[in-house]
């Protein structure tokens, strides 16, 4: 079995206004190639911190993280060739058009303009982007459309590991469904491994093969989506992921979100 991502005891502490925040308290994960791995947790549980570490944007205080066998800290440039990321904010030069933003992203990944244009047109069709709007400034796009451009940007570099940090947060139900379909498409047609962070229980259930629940910087439980539910089936009839979360953390998801917001 080959792994796309493995971590051992990853820790991260932030010091903010004389306050010490233990964002990650020893994370151990193994993500198999080709699966959609869900990191499920309330806001402030450490999901985005973990994604940033995997994206080479944050250096952990302790522990080891490898992507396709490359140490993320020591071999950052090798890792950067294998990954891409879509975050909750679409993050573009808002005054520039979609195509200018996409060509810039292609350029800094070493893709030629000719090749990039070919990819952009092909991917636009897949993600449902109107070609006629590719020359419009990003600031004129809806949130859902911006997120589709962000997904196109990530697709373009054909990453072996896609890091999706709450890609559907803030989207309307229709845009959310479209983005979720794209994630499934990405796995099926491109064979990409996907690490998806979300606080949306239904999304995790719909998309993920394997899920780890993170709470207060710790992995509370991990396992196959169906197996996790089966673990509490003797207690609750037709359990949901919300029930799984409550069973293992002792608090409801809403309470956990409130607690994290209070302590932030």
């Amino acid at each position: 079995m080959s792994y796309a991502l493995t971590t051992e005891n990853i820790k991260k502490v932030f010091k903010k206004n004389k306050k010490t925040i233990h964002a990650l308290k020893g994370i151990d994960l193994q993500i198999r190639e080709g699966e959609i791995y869900g990191l499920l947790g309330p806001n402030g549980s450490g999901k985005s911190t973990f994604i940033r570490i995997a994206s080479t944007l944050l250096i952990p205080d302790a522990g080891k993280i490898e992507i396709f066998g490359y140490d993320v800290v020591k071999k950052a440039s090798k890792v950067q060739r294998l990954i891409n990321r879509v975050s909750v904010e679409a993050s573009f030069f808002r005054k520039l058009s979609a195509i200018e933003n996409l060509l810039f992203a292609a350029g800094i990944h070493g893709i030629s303009k000719k090749e990039a244009l070919k990819k952009i047109y092909a991917i636009s069709e897949k993600v449902g982007l109107d070609k006629g709007r590719l020359h419009d400034p990003l600031e004129d796009f809806s949130r859902g459309m911006q997120q589709k451009v962000a997904i196109a940007r990530a697709f373009m570099t054909e990453p072996k590991l896609m890091l999706l940090d709450e890609p559907t947060t803030g989207l309307d139900p229709r845009a959310k469904r479209e983005v979720q379909s794209l994630i499934l498409h990405m796995k099926e047609k491109m064979g990409a491994t996907i690490l998806l962070t979300t606080h949306d229980m239904e999304e995790a259930e719909r998309l993920c093969d394997y899920v780890a629940i993170i709470h207060k910087g710790r992995i509370i439980v991990k396992g196959h989506t169906e197996k996790l539910k089966a673990m509490i089936a003797h207690k609750i009839k037709n359990p949901t992921f919300e029930d799984v979360f409550m069973e293992f953390t002792g608090v409801s998801f809403d309470e956990a979100e409130y607690e994290e917001a209070e302590s932030a």
Binding site: R52, S55, T56, L57, S77, Q80, R81, I83, R85, S87, E89, S91, F92, F93, R94, A105, I108, H109, G110, R153
Partner: peptide, 18 residues
């Protein structure tokens, strides 16, 4: 300000080139 910094800094290029 544009929130693009993380995308630029995770691109596989040398900082000197950038």
């Amino acid at each position: 300000w544009e929130e693009t910094i993380e995308y630029t800094f995770m691109a596989p290029i040398k900082r000197a080139t950038h």
